[in-house]
């Protein structure tokens, strides 16, 4: 059953990705990439990574799709058609993909308890979460306590990103219009 679900979800992801590549209509591409995120969220749920699935569904499918739509209103709706076909990007992508797939051959099986990454410090975290911190969610214990520095850094990164966007876009349109720096209306 799990195999069937994973196959269907991965197949859907593949179809969506190809559809995004094929379409020239940017609105369609944006909506499809929202669907792609939602399907990946479902896939992450089936991989038992519910925390990541939450984030993927809210940020990937929700917030970033809306931001992309906002961007679309500022630009054209159709991708520029490129006439000539270039071989070199295809070659680079194929070689990189083949290398990545070759790399997965050496990886431990999914959920293998003897995987090297799980033998190093993870047993300590699991025992510590059970005995010292005593909360059921190990992910929260690791993120907020054991890896508190990392999370503090991540929060600072989010804050910095917000400051950057606000510095670039924070001025309201009317202020720009008064100052006369706004670009002329795009032709519809």
């Amino acid at each position: 059953m799990e195999l069937l679900i994973n196959t269907v979800l991965l197949g859907l992801l593949g179809i969506t990705a190809i559809a995004i590549l094929m379409t020239r209509h940017l609105f369609v591409a944006t909506m499809l990439s929202g669907g792609y995120s939602l399907t990946s969220a479902a896939l992450l749920v089936s991989l038992d990574a519910v925390d990541v699935a939450f984030t993927e569904a809210a940020v990937g499918a929700g917030v970033s799709t809306v931001l992309m739509l906002g961007t679309l209103t500022l630009t054209r709706r159709r991708e520029k058609v490129q006439k000539e076909f270039r071989w070199s990007p295809l070659l680079v992508v194929t070689v990189t993909g083949a290398l990545l797939i070759y790399g997965t051959v050496d990886m431990p099986a999914f959920g293998d308890p003897n995987a090297p990454a799980l033998l190093h410090i993870v047993p300590e975290y699991i025992a510590g979460t059970r005995d010292d911190i005593q909360i059921p969610n190990i992910v929260t214990a690791i993120l907020a306590s054991y890896r508190g520095y990392d999370t503090l850094g991540e929060t600072a990164v989010i804050f910095t990103a917000g400051v950057g966007v606000l510095l670039l876009l924070g001025r309201r349109r009317e202020e720009d219009e008064e100052a006369g720096t706004r670009r002329p209306e795009r032709d519809a």
Partner: peptide, 19 residues
């Protein structure tokens, strides 16, 4: 607190630019 306000601010800044 940080995530809510930054996400909302980014959206509002973007939405303020669009038609």
């Amino acid at each position: 607190l940080t995530v809510v306000s930054v996400m909302a601010l980014i959206f509002l800044a973007f939405a303020g630019r669009t038609h």
